[in-house]
């Protein structure tokens, strides 16, 4: 069914570009404190890279990249990372998301612990945004034979 709509130019170009867009998204997540961006923007770009393959090659083929049910699970997992980091700080005797206390478990200085804490939170937010956006796309298209 998808072969009817297949546009070889769009399909091939998106397959070539998708990994690079994904890497750019990871760059946005990891460099959140030097340049604009951070978890949310990076997560959106990651979702965009995945949706590009879904749009161009058809939903069936794109299951090879990320399966249908995985989006929701990844979304929950991202939120878990975010809250896990926050509650870890609470357990260590500080406030919610009080990163500097992470230095008690991680073998780094207080400043570096702050750095790592922010990184964990941003990775969590990125995964959550990506998973949920892909899940929304898949749920909207459920049962559509042309997808």
């Amino acid at each position: 069914m998808t072969t009817d709509f297949e546009n070889p130019i769009v399909s091939l170009v998106s397959r070539v570009l998708s990994p690079f867009i994904m890497l750019f998204a990871l760059y946005v997540i990891f460099h959140g404190h030097y340049s604009p961006g951070g978890g949310f923007q990076g997560g959106t770009m990651l979702a965009a890279a995945i949706l590009l393959v879904r749009l161009s090659s058809g939903s069936e083929v794109a299951q090879l990249q990320l399966k249908r049910g995985v989006g929701t699970i990844l979304g929950s997992f991202g939120v878990l990372i975010y809250f896990g980091t926050g509650f870890l700080c609470l357990l260590l005797g500080g406030k919610f998301l009080d990163y500097e206390l992470l230095a008690r478990i991680l073998p780094v200085s207080k400043v570096m612990a702050h750095n790592w804490g922010i990184l964990f939170v941003e990775i969590g937010v990125g995964i959550a945004v990506m998973g949920l956006l892909v899940a929304i796309y898949d749920d909207l298209l459920e049962g559509d034979p042309d997808a």
């Binding site: 998808t2 072969t3 297949e6 399909s11 397959r15 998708s18 990994p19 994904m22 890497l23 990871l26 393959v53 090659s57 083929v61 794109a62 090879l64 990249q65 990320l66």
Partner: peptide, 14 residues
């Protein structure tokens, strides 16, 4: 990224 796209790259399109 390489691992994420591995299966898709193995796939042969129409």
């Amino acid at each position: 990224v390489i691992l994420f796209n591995l299966k898709l790259r193995k796939h042969y399109f129409y």
